[in-house]
C-alpha cells in the first residue's frame, strides 16, 4: 500500500504516459490510415459493415462465456430495445433480469 497518496513514481508516470500514447495511437491510427485508402463504393460498403461486426465480435464471447442468466438477459435487453426503442430501457431490463436470475438460478 502506498503511504503518500500524492507520490508520483517516475517509472509509474513513464508507464502511464506510454499507455496514454499507445491507446491514442490506436484510437487515431485507424482513422489516419484510412487517409491512404481512396474512398470507393467497395470501401464504403466495408466500413458500413464494421459497426455491426465489431459489436457482434465484442458481444458474442461475453454471451458464450456467460450462463443461462446472461443469455436471457441479452434477450430481455434486445426485446426492451425493440418495444421501447431506447437503450436505457434495454440496459435496465437486461441488468434487472440478470440480477434476478443470478439470485434464483
Amino acid at each position: 500500500m502506498p503511504a503518500d497518496p500524492w507520490v508520483l513514481d517516475p517509472l509509474a508516470v513513464a508507464a502511464i504516459a506510454g499507455m496514454s500514447l499507445a491507446t491514442y495511437s490506436m484510437r487515431a491510427g485507424g482513422f489516419w490510415l484510412m487517409r491512404w485508402m481512396p474512398m470507393s463504393r467497395r470501401v464504403e460498403a466495408w466500413l458500413r459493415h464494421i459497426p455491426g461486426a465489431v459489436i457482434v465480435a465484442l458481444l458474442a464471447p461475453m454471451v458464450a462465456r456467460g450462463g443461462p442468466a446472461e443469455l436471457v438477459g441479452v434477450a430481455a435487453a434486445a426485446l426492451a430495445m425493440r418495444v421501447v426503442g431506447h437503450d436505457l430501457a434495454a440496459i435496465v431490463a437486461g441488468i434487472a433480469t440478470v440480477a434476478l436470475l443470478r439470485q434464483v438460478l
Partner: peptide, 22 residues
C-alpha cells in the same frame, strides 16, 4: 459489481445497439 448485475451494463448496451444497427 456482479452482485447487482452491473457487469451486465455493457452487454445489455451492446445488445441494444445491435437491435438498432440491424
Amino acid at each position: 459489481p456482479r452482485t447487482w448485475g452491473l457487469d451486465f451494463t455493457v452487454v445489455a448496451f451492446f445488445a441494444a445497439v445491435l437491435v438498432k444497427l440491424w
